[in-house]
């Protein structure tokens, strides 16, 4: 499968989607307030659709965002719903939600997604530099 690797900017996150069985990595990190959220997230959602047809034995998505706007929050939900579909289909799926240990809003955002989406969720706090 094709690898998606997008460098982060001051308004778009860094994205890595690599399903190489040797060393897979799925990660979204940084900031998300793109001018056109749909255009930014569409390729990611398409990648996930293709991946879902034949996923790895274990799928782990790391989300490590410092900031996202409300328009992005909707697209993040769309991503998580795709993982939920995979989980419902009997696949092993885990979402790891990373939040800075001094950012209660980002922690709460993770808890809320965990509430909305029926998929194994892990909250991971880290120290923000």
């Amino acid at each position: 499968m094709q690898v998606i690797k997008i460098e982060g900017t001051d308004d778009t996150p860094q994205v890595t989607l690599d399903a190489n069985p040797e060393n897979p990595l799925m990660e979204i990190s940084g900031r998300s307030l793109p001018e056109d959220v749909v255009a930014f997230y569409d390729p990611i959602l398409e990648w996930l659709d293709e991946y879902a047809e034949n996923p790895l034995e274990k799928t782990v998505l790391n989300i490590k965002l410092e900031y996202f706007n409300t328009a992005s929050s909707k697209l993040l939900l769309d991503i998580l719903l795709k993982l939920e579909d995979m989980y419902d289909a009997g696949h092993d799926v885990l979402v790891r939600w990373h939040y800075p240990d001094d950012d209660e809003d980002m922690e709460e955002a993770g808890e809320e997604y965990e509430d909305i989406v029926e998929v194994p969720f892990e909250q991971v706090s880290y120290t923000f530099e």
């Binding site: 056109d36 959220v37 409300t70 328009a71 929050s73 909707k74 939900l77 509430d115 909305i116």
Partner: peptide
């Protein structure tokens, strides 16, 4: 309200999620 709105359909053509005020 937030959960209802975030789950509701697609983004508007202006790219809004109807979540700004609530948030």
């Amino acid at each position: 309200l937030y959960k209802e709105q975030i789950k509701k359909g697609r983004l508007s053509e202006k790219g809004g999620a109807g979540l700004g005020f609530i948030d």
